[in-house]
C-alpha cells in the first residue's frame, strides 16, 4: 500500500453479551480514500463502523478488546476524551435523523457545542450546506424545521451537519439505502468529491455501489475479516473462496 494508514485496527474483538460479533479484526484503513465494508447481513459491518467512534459502549453488555488507532493514538485509551474522538469522525446513518430543530440549527449544532463563536455561524452553515450540495435548495427556508425536507435532502443535511464539526473521517452506514436512486446518486457524487479531503468508510450491501465508489474493500463474514485489499483486487481477483462466492452472488 502506498499511502500511509489513517486508521489502524489491531486485534479488535466485540461481543454482545455472549455472542461474538467481531473476531480479532486487524486492518489498516488508507488515508483520503473510500473504503467499503461489504458482507452479508448480520456479519458485523455496522458493529465495526460503530467501534470506530465508540458508539458501541452506548449499549450495555458490550465487551470490546483490541485497539483502534487514529493518527497513532488509541481511541479506546481511557485517558482520552470521548467527545474529542467522536468529533474527529462524522457519522452518516442508514436513515437520516435530523435533530428536532431548524435546518440552520442542525448544521450549527455541532460547531455550537464545541464552542464556536456566533458571529461567523451564518457563513459556516452556508459553507457546509454548499459542500453537501444542499445550499441552493434550502437557502430560502433555513429556519424551517428540518423534518420538512425530503428524505434525500435530509440525508445531505445530515452530511452537512457532520462535516460542520470538521471531522477527518466520515463513517457512513448504508447511507443510501433509504433513498431514491436520484438522491443516492447525489450522495455518491458527493463522496467522490469529499475523498480529496476526508477518509471515508462506507458500509454497503450493494456490490455495485462498492464497485463504483471504493478504492479499498474489506469483506467480512460472520464477524471475521475474510479478505481486504484494493478494490480492483477484491473484485477482479479475490484470493479467498468465500469472497469469490460473495462477489458472484452465491452467498449473500
Amino acid at each position: 500500500m502506498d499511502a500511509k494508514p489513517h486508521l489502524q485496527v489491531k486485534n479488535l474483538s466485540v461481543s454482545y453479551g455472549t455472542t461474538a460479533a467481531l473476531k480479532n479484526i486487524s486492518v489498516d484503513i488508507p488515508d483520503k480514500k473510500i473504503t467499503a465494508i461489504i458482507g452479508p447481513s448480520g456479519c458485523g459491518k455496522s458493529t465495526l463502523l460503530r467501534a470506530f467512534n465508540r458508539l458501541l459502549e452506548d449499549g450495555d453488555e458490550v465487551s470490546i478488546s483490541g485497539q483502534v488507532l487514529v493518527d497513532n493514538e488509541d481511541i479506546y485509551d481511557p485517558r482520552n476524551d470521548i467527545t474529542q474522538i467522536r468529533k474527529k469522525m462524522g457519522l452518516l446513518s442508514q436513515k437520516p435523523y435530523p435533530l428536532p430543530m431548524s435546518i440552520f440549527e442542525n448544521v450549527a449544532y455541532g460547531p455550537r457545542i464545541h464552542g464556536i463563536k456566533k458571529n461567523r455561524m451564518d457563513e459556516t452553515v452556508r459553507h457546509y450546506l454548499t459542500i453537501a450540495g444542499l445550499w441552493e435548495e434550502v437557502k430560502d427556508r433555513l429556519h424551517e424545521p428540518a423534518t420538512r425536507l425530503s428524505i434525500g435532502q435530509q440525508q445531505r443535511l445530515c452530511l452537512a451537519r457532520g462535516l460542520a464539526v470538521e471531522p477527518e473521517i466520515i463513517l457512513a452506514d448504508e447511507p443510501t439505502s433509504a433513498l431514491d436512486p436520484k438522491s443516492s446518486q447525489k450522495i455518491e457524487a458527493e463522496f467522490k468529491v469529499l475523498k480529496n479531503d476526508y477518509t471515508i468508510i462506507i458500509v454497503t450491501h450493494i456490490l455495485r455501489q462498492a464497485r463504483r465508489l471504493a478504492d479499498y474493500v474489506l469483506f467480512i463474514y460472520l464477524g471475521e475479516l475474510i479478505e481486504h485489499g484494493p478494490a480492483r483486487q477484491i473484485f477482479e481477483n479475490p484470493q479467498h473462496e468465500m469472497t469469490k462466492e460473495y462477489i458472484q452472488g452465491i452467498i449473500s
Binding site: 458508539l55 457519522l91 435533530l99 430543530m101 455541532g110 457545542i113 451537519r161 464539526v165
Partner: peptide, 21 residues
C-alpha cells in the same frame, strides 16, 4: 436511539444531547 447517536457522534456530551435533543 439513532437520534441520540446523531448528537453524540458530533461530539456532544450526554448531557448536551439530553438538553438540546
Amino acid at each position: 436511539r439513532e437520534l441520540r447517536e446523531a448528537s453524540l457522534a458530533l461530539g456532544a456530551t450526554r448531557w448536551q444531547t439530553v438538553k438540546h435533543v
